[in-house]
Amino acid sequence: MIGNDIVDLRQAMLESNWRRKGYLDKLFSRTEQLWIEGTSKPTQMIWLLWSMKEAAYKIHSRRKNWRAFAPLKLICQTLEIKEELATGSIQCENITFFSQTILATDFIHTVVSEQYPMQAIKVNISTYNPGDCSYRSTDPATVSHHGRFLALAYLK
């Protein structure tokens, strides 16, 4: 099973103020906050970590039929950033998930898998049109939309 999550960075800037008092403590572990403090791009790091948690939650919630707002139960364990690509792992209730993230100028998109190395995955990112559900007939394995973007991921 795979899960994905896209963050439209413009939308995130309009809708979220992560500098708000108490904000980071509710979403990120101490270690994750140290990563945020230790980078020259804190906004990018925040949405990178957030999308990792969201994509992992998509798998875990389906597997366990679990529904919760529990960002602190999804812990980013490892993270390596090489230019526009980030790879990492997320742990939730003793299960480890593996992630790959594209760090683009306008968006951040993460795919998470239960397997390592990750199976072959095809990603399609396009403009989101709320009235158009035709993408459903393409049978994507996981769907995410935010702001201007629609992200579909397929198992090859």
């Binding site: 963050v7 995130a12 809708e15 979220s16 708000r20 008092k21 108490g22 904000y23 509710k26 979403l27 957030w50 969201e54 707002f69 960002p71 935010h146």
Partner: peptide, 14 residues
């Protein structure tokens, strides 16, 4: 509500 804004709901309620 966007899931990233749930934290704002929680903080506003607090």
């Amino acid at each position: 509500i966007n899931s990233a804004n749930l934290v704002d709901v929680v903080l506003d309620v607090e």
